[in-house]
């Protein structure tokens, strides 16, 4: 099973994961983490622990989604993931991306899954109306 960790400022990630559960029901392998109050080394260590937990459970690697490109969440995720394969970090997390992840993760190869989630996230940002 491909796992996903959502890392954000404040409680954004926790709420995204909670709401995802309200839509699809309880899901495994989807977790949230905040950067609030954490130094970069501590945040990196927490992410590394999440990756190690997956490796110990037979799911090495994984997908990390962060809220903002260039923020401490993205930097810590890059430092924790290092050069290992089977890991990807996507910024700009939104609800559509999480729903796409849970819908496709059992059937897609990892690289294809990552590409589809990036496309899905962009498609979800659109002018709905009211102009």
């Amino acid at each position: 099973m491909i796992r996903c960790l959502v890392i954000t400022h404040g409680n954004i990630g926790m709420e995204l994961v909670r709401v995802t559960g309200l839509i699809l029901g309880p899901v495994e392998g989807l977790a949230a983490m905040t950067n609030s109050g954490k130094s970069l080394p501590d945040l990196k260590a927490e992410i590394a622990a999440w990756l190690e937990e997956g490796a110990a459970a037979g799911s090495p690697g994984g997908l990390i989604m962060v809220d903002d490109y260039g923020g401490s969440c993205a930097t810590a995720a890059q430092l924790a993931c290092g050069h290992e394969g089977g890991r990807a970090i996507i910024s700009g997390v939104n609800l559509a991306m999480l729903l796409g992840f849970l819908t496709w993760r059992d059937n897609d190869e990892f690289d294809e899954l990552v590409s589809r989630i990036v496309r899905k996230g962009r498609e979800a940002i659109t002018l709905v109306g009211g102009r």
């Binding site: 400022h9 130094s39 970069l40 080394p41 903002d68 260039g70 923020g71 401490s72 930097t75």
Partner: peptide
């Protein structure tokens, strides 16, 4: 700043 380069700095 122990986060060094991040949003509070770059934005």
């Amino acid at each position: 700043d122990d986060r060094l380069i991040h949003g509070q700095v770059t934005v």
